[in-house]
Computed example of a mutant assay.
Amino acid sequence: MDWGNLLYHIILQIFQHLSLVDQAQASSVCRCWNNVFHTPDPWRRFEFELNQPATSYLCSTHPDLVQQIIKKHAQHLQYVIFKIDSSTESAEAGCDILS
């Protein structure tokens, strides 16, 4: 199967089931997947997690990456979901991003 020949909406569906890091890796499959990754559609809903690895089972997203994504795709965002553990460091990072 030639993965580059999948329809746009199918690739978009695949991306919606992947974490941000996995989406970025999948965008390197081919030019078509990279183009889908950089369209506004995947960035309408952005969910990320801030936590300290020793205190949480969540998969953390680096705060700098979160800020870059929000800055780059702010005009497309409709929903942003924060998941933050109970640590002070995570709470401070979340407040920094929101400010």
Rank of each mutant, 00 (worst) to 15 (best):
G94L: 02
P63N: 07
S99N: 15
V80P: 01
C30W: 05
A93Y: 03
Y8E: 09
W3K: 04
G94W: 02
W33E: 08
L6P: 04
I11A: 01
Y57M: 10
V36R: 02
P63Y: 03
Q25T: 09
H17P: 02
D85P: 05
L77M: 15
Y79Q: 15
F82D: 00
D96L: 09
N5Q: 14
S86H: 09
Y8M: 12
I11R: 02
M1A: 11
Y57Q: 11
A91E: 07
D41F: 01
L20H: 12
S90R: 02
D96T: 13
L98Q: 13
S56N: 08
D2V: 04
F48Y: 13
S27Y: 03
V21N: 15
L7F: 08
H38A: 06
L18Y: 05
S27C: 13
S99F: 10
Y8W: 15
A26E: 07
G94C: 14
H73V: 01
A24M: 13
L18P: 07
N51Q: 11
L20Y: 12
S27G: 11
T55A: 10
A54E: 14
D85W: 01
L50V: 01
L18K: 04
N35T: 12
A24Q: 14
Q52I: 05
F37L: 13
N35M: 11
I81T: 12
Q13I: 06
V36T: 07
S19A: 10
A74K: 15
C30D: 04
W33C: 06
I70N: 01
D96Q: 14
L18A: 04
Q23V: 00
L12C: 08
L7Q: 12
F46T: 03
R44N: 08
Q67H: 09
T55Y: 11
H9Y: 10
Q68N: 14
H76Q: 04
L12D: 07
S87C: 03
H9M: 11
H38L: 14
E47S: 13
S87M: 01
Q67K: 15
H9E: 14
P40R: 05
E92T: 08
W43E: 08
R45S: 12
M1V: 09
L58K: 10
I84T: 07
A74V: 04
I69Y: 06
P42K: 03
T88G: 00
S90T: 00
H76G: 00
K72F: 02
Q23L: 03
A74R: 15
A24I: 13
E47P: 00
V21S: 15
K83Q: 06
D41G: 00
D96P: 00
Q68C: 13
R45K: 14
L6E: 03
Q78M: 03
P53W: 07
Q67D: 12
N35D: 14
L12W: 05
T88H: 11
W43A: 06
Y57P: 02
F82P: 02
Y8Q: 12
Y79K: 15
V21T: 15
P53V: 09
D64C: 05
E89H: 02
S28R: 15
D96A: 14
H62T: 05
N35G: 09
Q25D: 10
W3D: 05
Q23D: 03
S87A: 03
S90C: 00
A24E: 15
Q16P: 00
V66W: 00
V21W: 13
F15V: 06
K83E: 01
L50N: 00
F15Q: 06
F82V: 00
A91N: 09
